Amino acid sequence: MSEMVIFDRAAVAAHRDRAAARLGRVRPVLDDLASRLLDRLDDTGRVFARALDIGGRGAVTPLLAARGIAVVATDLSPRMVAAGHGDVVADEEFLPFGAACFDLIVAHLSLHWVNDLPGALVQIRRSLKPEGLFLASMPLLGTLGGLRAALIEAEAALTGGAAPRVSPFPELADCAGLLQRAGFALPIAERETIDFDYADPLALLRDLRDAGETNATVARARRMPPRELLAMALASMVMDGRLVVRLDMAVLTGWGS
């Protein structure tokens, strides 16, 4: 396991617990992103029988089931599973499955809070049958970049310093290298960019909370931020009365060997 601990996994689970009852508010976005990812299955020309859905928050499993695929879904959050958005409570860093269990494994926007990503990918590859497919998505460097910069600038102006308030994300080239390092055959990492347009800037923060995507870095500030921080940061991002934020999403594919 990697010795580097960037994310507080207990906080990740707590944020997902809190989001379990709120997913309906962001369901259209989660479903659309899952559909974009799973469209890649049509390009494979393969028929899959048994799939593992890692942390899909109820967006991936129905789409796979509609293709006639038997699905086992996991989530780090017990409340997410209790709410029907998974079957098994499981940590992505310690998957409770044996070798060659699935011919398809999907990890949709769930691996970016993992500390030991190389180790998690090795476990996923081992749980994949020979010639099975691993399909994943994760945010890339540049995602929420405007929010990151605005928060740093506003907090520095208010307090003279700034705490990390947006998660670090990998670069695209790193993703393909991680797949190859984990032993996947024919690793591919592609970029897909989606812009989100908000009339109410605060709606961005609500969406992140309702999706379970709020800050869970170990180095995050534990005290309440200055009252003016969020309003100042968001105001600096608004142009022509709108707030536009970008998701740079990596789409990863790799085959079992």
Score class of each variant (00 low, 15 high):
89 V>R: 00
10 A>Q: 13
104 L>C: 05
110 S>P: 06
20 A>T: 00
199 A>P: 00
245 V>L: 09
74 T>F: 07
69 I>A: 01
54 I>C: 07
138 M>S: 09
183 G>K: 03
207 D>M: 09
161 G>M: 06
241 G>L: 03
151 L>G: 07
226 P>Q: 12
123 Q>S: 10
201 P>T: 07
167 S>L: 15
214 T>G: 04
247 L>W: 14
251 V>W: 13
207 D>V: 05
55 G>W: 02
6 I>F: 06
83 A>I: 05
247 L>Q: 14
220 R>I: 02
85 H>D: 00
48 F>R: 14
29 V>T: 10
213 E>I: 01
25 R>F: 12
166 V>Y: 13
253 T>S: 13
8 D>M: 02
206 R>W: 09
145 G>P: 07
158 L>E: 04
224 M>R: 15
72 V>N: 00
233 A>Q: 07
185 A>K: 05
191 R>V: 10
168 P>A: 11
194 I>Y: 07
99 A>R: 10
177 G>I: 06
190 E>F: 04
51 A>Y: 02
219 A>F: 04
222 R>I: 06
223 R>L: 14
42 D>W: 00
191 R>L: 12
133 L>A: 09
244 V>I: 14
81 V>S: 10
227 R>M: 12
73 A>Y: 13
131 E>P: 02
59 A>K: 04
92 E>V: 11
112 H>I: 08
30 L>A: 12
110 S>H: 13
30 L>K: 10
236 S>Q: 12
96 P>V: 03
132 G>Y: 09
21 A>S: 15
219 A>G: 11
109 L>A: 15
220 R>G: 09
23 L>K: 03
111 L>H: 12
44 T>A: 00
171 E>L: 14
195 D>E: 14
56 G>Y: 04
110 S>D: 11
174 D>M: 08
52 L>F: 01
114 V>A: 05
86 G>D: 01
192 E>I: 07
79 R>E: 15
191 R>E: 14
32 D>N: 10
121 L>Y: 00
121 L>D: 10
71 V>H: 06
167 S>K: 13
131 E>A: 12
160 G>C: 01
106 V>P: 06
14 A>N: 05
